[in-house]
């Protein structure tokens, strides 16, 4: 997936239905800001957003993430029987470890999917998919 082609794939995707915990996360991404939760009691970061800290049940606050991370693991989807994604194959689905220590699933884009390696440096690429939703894609970057 090239960056140019990426925008038009957004309509093919099932978008999140924001809830009380996730509304600010998706809205911020739509406005170009990647945010994650941090516990105000124990200081742990967490993803995905929740109504409590999963470590200590404390309350959380929003912190802007650096937007840098590494590729923890990945796969290249070569077969998807769903029409929407069949046309995009092959594409990379990765687990990204953010500098803040939390992990999220995303597509690794703007790259040769056959050249991906565990541990490679990534940066976030936020694309607005709807008024209330931005999607955080990731792409390889020189370290």
């Amino acid at each position: 997936m090239t960056i140019e082609g990426l925008q038009e794939t957004l309509v093919l995707r099932a978008l999140p239905a924001p809830d009380n915990a996730s509304r600010h996360y998706w809205q911020s991404a739509a406005e170009g800001k990647l945010v994650v939760q941090r516990c105000t009691t124990c200081g742990e970061y967490q993803f995905y957003p929740r109504a409590l800290c999963v470590a200590c049940a404390g309350e959380t606050e929003w912190v802007e993430a650096s937007g840098r991370g590494t590729l923890h693991t990945f796969t290249v989807i070569r077969q998807n029987r769903s029409a929407a994604f069949a046309a995009l194959s092959p594409y990379a689905v990765g687990i990204v470890e953010l500098e803040e220590g939390v992990r999220m699933m995303s597509n690794i884009v703007d790259c040769d999917v056959d050249a991906l390696e565990v541990g490679m440096a990534l940066e976030v690429l936020l694309l607005k998919a709807a008024d209330d939703v931005g999607l955080p894609f990731w792409r390889p970057v020189a370290r």
Partner: peptide, 27 residues
């Protein structure tokens, strides 16, 4: 090898953080 939901839908719950990426069960 299919994506659990497709364009035009909104996905609630924990799947909201995954289904937009086109992952499949094998993936």
């Amino acid at each position: 090898t299919s994506t659990f939901s497709t364009g035009g839908t909104r996905v609630p719950g924990p799947a909201q953080y995954e289904n937009c990426w086109g992952n499949v069960l094998a993936g």
